[in-house]
Design a protein around this nucleic acid. Structure first.
Lengths: 359, 359
DNA sequence: AGTAAAGTAGGAAACGTTTCCGAAAATTAA
DNA sequence: TTAATTTTCGGAAACGTTTCCTACTTTACT
């Protein structure tokens, strides 16, 4: 790190920032020769004001560079026009899409979003909803990962509207929040697909059992019985976990002929390591991930995946939240689910498997 | 999209949220039998209060579930403990890392961050700075992309502290903001590397000339003269632009033997298309990108790249901003630069090039 | 023209804090 | 003890808006 010369254009010590006098609504009123209530009406288009004086006031505002104090407004009208978005980690491949979608729809409705990374750990998730009141926001969108037991309880107790982006867990019916997620288990699609293309020794490579458990359940439920040696629970959802999973499966005397990976990062890791090891995908082992992020199309082979509809889920979650805010929390809580979509790519096409005997 | 049954646990019409009475500092004071000033002292650890009464008050607060109204506090103390982070698009590969870094360091100092996507377009970048006062924030971190001409002017005019995460443009010395970026042109490293491994027809594949122009300048300046046919200006920084760039270079009678891509996304696009076209990387054409995102290690061949130190840059930008906020804008503006790092991978290793004549 | 209705405007009371300032209580010094 | 400090505390004035309520103008209608 290099510290280039400092810029001395601010050497006067205390800067403009500190000395510049704030112009308030009262200043505007005085200068325009009207009452402060009138100025308020002008800036809020609240009506009850003649076009003439309104124009005058607007001009004075322009001249003086008046900007209403947001804190004062919030104090008075009891809303901040901000919502909080709590996600596990913005660096996880699918999250940016969600964050973007939330921010865009919020902006369309005049809302800003404050970003919170929970690191997907239980304590932080709980803390976020417990302290949401201190957050200066009108509502909370949370995408849980750890799903601590008391999470729902806390959500039900808080007075600020919350909307849940729900992947990975079936939630109680009585949660006092709008919930949007997926209609069928993403994993179901993967398993059905792998079975359909004729794979018989299907493995699961995933995160710890207690995270996103629905994805593992889909595995269990799609199989008459599970061979424990074909299940690899990693530590997280990372590329490295994928590498390790591949190593593990490779070490087996009897390798799987297909792997259902908990997400694309893991799938990509697996495919990469297999390439190093000389395992052919999909000929020897088919690999399918979940999330359908851009990078599945960039590896070779390209990787089959399931789209979890992140942007649509996020957009709806945001709209439901804003609606609830608008209606002061009234109305039955919504439960909406999108249909995940399987996208088949090279890593799991049906191939004629050549038996050595036939050659 | 499926709308599962609505949850009727909120059918009473207007909900708890709307009816629950807010408990204020005054309620606490009354119940504790003290003055409201004293309660304020208790929650702010401002001293001038006996341990005994403080304990009492804290307990009452606990009982009543009192949470100070942030808007009122902000109005009074004139700060919101929030900063804004304006980036082009959170979905761009390097941004999440930056956003994460900003959020984490902000949190350490008790600040929250509100996310803004400017889409990298000039109008939105300007608007963000111009309207920052309406944003309820104590400071702004902006990562410009379009760098509209009046941006600096606006920054210099605003009274809220700003910190610039600066990739892609040399900024005037007189910018009234802390600026953190890279010490040497990232592109310089790429070009030197390509030249060193013996490439002679080096091409540039990038975004429009006016975006991140420093990266193109590095190209120009590293070459005795540039062959215009070896320069491809795409529309953006995307994977697709990479595909198109590859097509373009492939169409040349005389292909380049190396490509310096404006970023990793483009580089990945190029490598992918080349693979389809049967062009060997790096044997026929070496490819190097910039950003060093995870995905460069996931393609085959793995792609050489330059780390732009996103997390460190972002962390420092945040710390400088918070420092300036703390000091009310006083102090000389800092200019700090990190050293970018070249990471050589398969896509640009030196290879013995086999001439067909020798075989 | 006179009256009723509608349209405009301003004063002042909130909103829920923090903080200045003075008073009361507790502590120390003599 | 008494006086001089030092602590501890409460009242009340901000902070900058929105909005209720009242009063004054217009306009519309007979």
């Amino acid at each position: 790190m290099v510290r280039i010369a400092e810029n001395d254009s601010n050497k006067e010590g205390t800067s403009l920032l500190a000395t510049k006098k704030k112009v308030t609504i009262e200043d505007v009123a005085k200068k325009a020769g009207v009452g402060i209530a009138t100025v308020s009406r002008a800036i809020n288009n609240s009506g009850g004001i003649s076009p003439k004086t309104k124009a005058l006031i607007l001009q004075v505002i322009e001249e003086m560079g008046f900007i209403p104090n947001t804190s004062a407004q919030s104090l008075k009208v009891r809303q901040t026009n901000q919502i909080a978005l709590a996600v596990p980690d913005i660096r996880n491949a699918i999250i940016p899409e969600i964050a973007w979608s939330v921010e865009q729809t919020a902006k369309q409705h005049g809302y800003r979003v404050v970003q919170i990374n929970t690191s997907g750990n239980a304590r932080t998730e709980l803390e976020t909803v417990r302290e949401v009141k201190k957050l200066h926001v009108d509502g909370l969108i949370i995408m849980p990962l750890a799903y601590p037991k008391t999470l729902v309880e806390l959500i039900n107790k808080t007075t600020v509207p919350v909307s849940i982006i729900n992947y990975g867990k079936k939630l109680d019916d009585n949660v006092k929040a709008d919930i949007v997620g997926l209609a069928s288990q993403e994993g179901r699609l993967v398993m059905e697909h792998l079975i359909k293309i004729g794979r018989t020794r299907i493995a699961y490579a995933g995160a710890p059992k207690n995270k996103i458990e629905e994805r593992y359940f889909a595995y269990e439920q799609s199989l008459p019985q599970v061979d424990p040696s074909l299940v690899y629970f990693g530590e997280d959802f990372s590329f490295e976990t994928g590498l390790r999973a591949a190593d593990y499966f490779y070490s087996l005397k009897n390798m799987p002929d297909a792997i259902y990976a908990v997400n694309d990062m893991v799938a990509i890791g697996i495919v990469n390591r297999f390439k190093e090891l000389g395992v052919r995908v999909p000929e020897d082992v088919a690999v399918v991930g979940i999330d359908n992020n851009l990078w599945t199309t960039v590896t070779s082979p390209q990787i089959s995946s399931v789209s979890i509809m992140g942007d649509e889920v996020a957009r709806l979650a945001t709209e439901l939240l804003l609606k609830r805010i608008r209606e002061h929390g009234a109305g039955a809580y919504e439960r909406v689910q999108f249909e995940p979509r399987l996208i088949v790519r090279e890593s799991s096409v049906a191939v004629i498997r050549q038996s050595p005997l036939i050659t």
